[in-house]
Write a protein that binds this DNA or RNA. Structure first.
Length: 110
DNA sequence: GAATTGACGTTCT
DNA sequence: AAGAACGCCAATT
């Protein structure tokens, strides 16, 4: 396996700004394993190593697919709501606006 | 070691 | 436009 992969996922997710969200695919793309977007979710499932704001990561349409994997039933929604991200019917409101592309990190490093 | 599964995404029908 | 199928790769059984 590739521990570096998980590491990158964690690093990226940790960098997600407050009140913003991103997608598994975006992270996968950023890392370079675009086609293995499933692995991103898998990595987050093993996030017990460190605290990861996994609630800020949703699928491509802003749907909280991983909601069920959280401790509480609406833990994910609650956390997002706490950050000012409204969730309706298991999906992020104005997801397109709140979307944060990891590629932005590269620009900041210029 | 083979078969199954999964917090996804794209493509073909 | 909606639904089914497939690809991807690692972990679990």
């Amino acid at each position: 396996m590739d521990p570096d992969f998980y590491d990158k996922v964690y690093q990226v997710v940790k960098q997600i700004p407050f009140g913003r969200v991103t997608t598994y695919g975006a992270i996968a793309k950023f890392i370079g394993v675009k086609k293995a977007s499933r692995m991103v979710g898998w990595a987050l499932n093993n996030c017990k190593r460190d605290y990861i704001p996994a609630h800020r990561v949703v699928n491509r349409i802003g749907l909280l697919t991983g909601k069920a994997s959280f401790p509480g039933e609406n833990m994910m929604e609650d956390l997002l709501a706490s950050e000012g991200v409204n969730v309706e019917n298991n999906k992020v409101v104005d997801f397109k606006q709140l979307f944060w592309d990891p590629q932005i990190l590269l620009k900041e490093f210029e």
